[in-house]
Design a protein around this nucleic acid. Structure first.
Lengths: 332, 332
DNA sequence: GTCGGGGATGGGAACGTTACCAACTCCGAC
DNA sequence: GTCGGAGTTGGTAACGTTCCCATCCCCGAC
């Protein structure tokens, strides 16, 4: 009923627990014959080492577990990132605890506290809009931290992001090049760093064309597909509705595309690519970022820190790609 | 540099470690004044309880951690399920370790072994095609197991699935009702239980119309979007190509829809709904299952087992819904 | 024959925490 | 004045493992 321990295995194999420890952990100094006897006892009892007890005692304790904290695991962008992180971790024999924050600072704190209480070796973090001073003490205690997708204000850690501002600028410039002058901006919370960056890129492009920002065309704080659909409806009710849309993440893009009718003549560029974005009845161009590369890069950075890299925090910026799709294009 | 322990807190607060333990864990029998002194010492030192050591010692040890093992976390279906599981776990103050198997029995074993070595309270498992006898010993040791999406052959555990066969039958019946008689089947590995069920449903519908299975129209073992696209190309090269397609999961559906040209006259019904499936340039009907309900149900079942429910294993079957979309329809 | 060395094995302590029990204080009741 | 009980506190052992050191054995070298 209870799980067998090394003592039980030792008794069954007629050796000391110490020898079992060595045999089970593959350390040298066990004769082949003894090792075989231990292995048989292990098999017979169905013994499995208790890694929690192990990590408690080991000289340099490491749980071989990292925590991944994202905004929303159900979002395909973060799902791809998570899978990529998991693959990288699996390659190192490491496990991944996941947590979604919904971008709520309180939930972020709870999740991170639960992770550090379990002695994770490191945290891969998509920071919420809240402060992150509470990370300082775990970091002094040895927990490594790497930020992905967004930096954490006032926290000196490695950060992996993409060129949000330049990507947004290119997207809006493309729309301007198509002759549009009334380009709406549909964004998530302005408190989120990526959103501020993308909004800045939007302004960059407008400004380069000598266009001022039209507050009526700018909508922030869209947290869901239905928020985005509602914002779209409001924009179309304007006296002079926009002729093009810039949507700043996949959720908003999906909300907008879902609400557009087939006959609608409006050009859309969205941040984030997604499956079949090239097969929609209304054409959709996208600023594509690579969540797999994002996750893999961040994970590698984290593991190099866990392995003892003490150099100054790095900031890695990956590039986005504008994919133009339209009636005349072959898609991509 | 090193993380403080209860001893350090005890020294700082001028009490015994035992009292710190009580105070930190909110147990009764600590005077308000002492509790306050302990709390201040905790804050000052940045102390956090080591839950691994705690669980080692506790009377009925529970790590408040469950393991979630899915085929592929990047698949939107499993991503939604994972998020739903995580929410359920969060509500209980429980953490979630995730692992993807790629449907490889070896990786499944590795992941599960790593999970049980860390003493997870339970496993939420999308079983691979491999055997699962290796789960018996952890289960005797107290690890609860619930299967989701598919049953595990020869394992007496709770299982949450959907009515795959009936859903597939309804999908193919719909195509037959549209006048199609050459309906291709594009499926994943036949070894996967859901795929066998969906294939059986396909045959049910054909049989009810007095149609035999045409081996030329049936393709198994499609593991990726490109596999699906290639299978589609091969089918269209047939002397008498199919006029309708039944695709048996989201990956295959996406592969097929991505490869279809805009002018193609072919009806498609796919298993699994996904965002904007109603906005594709080629209409797509789907058999929709609810991954959120699947995950939540399975998680609740698992937690009730962890809480001590020893009744006979249950088998829960959730219902699918056929969503018909076409040029004449409003979509859904 | 003694000695030395290397390989195998075991004993005891410790990791950070909690279970269990004992002890102490304080107070009212007999 | 003694007793008893409730409330608070501390000491000791133990959870399952590994680190450190000692021991034992065998064998070859002097």
């Amino acid at each position: 009923m209870k799980r067998p321990t090394m003592k039980d295995v030792a008794r069954a194999a007629g050796v000391s627990p110490m020898t079992v420890s060595r045999a089970v952990s593959g350390e040298p100094g066990v004769s082949p014959g003894t090792a075989a006897r231990v292995e048989q006892a292990v098999r017979q009892l169905g013994y499995q080492r208790n890694d929690n007890a192990r990590n408690l005692r080991r000289k340099n304790p490491t749980t071989s577990t990292i925590g991944l904290v994202v905004d929303d695991l159900a979002n395909p962008f973060y799902a791809l990132m998570a899978r990529s992180v998991e693959d990288e971790a699996h390659r190192r024999g490491c496990l991944v605890l996941v947590g979604s924050t919904n971008d709520e600072p309180r939930r972020e704190r709870e999740v991170i506290a639960a992770f550090t209480a379990r002695q994770v070796d490191g945290l891969l973090l998509v920071p919420t809009i809240g402060g992150h001073g509470f990370l300082r003490q775990p970091m002094e205690g040895g927990t490594r931290v790497v930020c992905v997708d967004r930096p954490a204000k006032g926290l000196a850690v490695d950060t992996v992001t993409v060129d949000n501002r330049a990507g947004a600028e290119r997207a809006v410039r493309h729309l301007l090049g198509q002759g549009h002058t009334r380009i709406a901006y549909l964004g998530d919370r302005f408190g989120i760093w990526t959103q501020r960056e993308r909004h800045a890129g939007y302004l960059d492009a407008l400004g380069a064309h000598g266009l001022p920002e039209d507050p009526a065309l700018v909508r922030h704080e869209l947290r869901s597909r239905s928020d985005a659909a509602a914002a779209l409806a409001a924009l179309r009710g304007l006296e002079r509705p926009p002729t093009a849309l810039f949507t700043t993440n996949d959720v908003i893009t999906m909300g907008v595309m879902g609400a557009l009718g087939d006959g609608d003549r409006v050009d859309v560029v969205g941040f984030d690519d997604f499956p079949l974005a090239d097969r929609l009845s209304t054409p959709l161009s996208v600023v594509s970022q690579d969540p797999v590369a994002l996750g893999a890069t961040a994970a590698q950075l984290l593991f190099s820190r866990i392995d003892g890299d003490r150099s100054a925090p790095r900031s890695v910026v990956l590039l986005t790609r504008l994919i133009v799709r339209g009636p005349g294009r072959a898609g991509s």
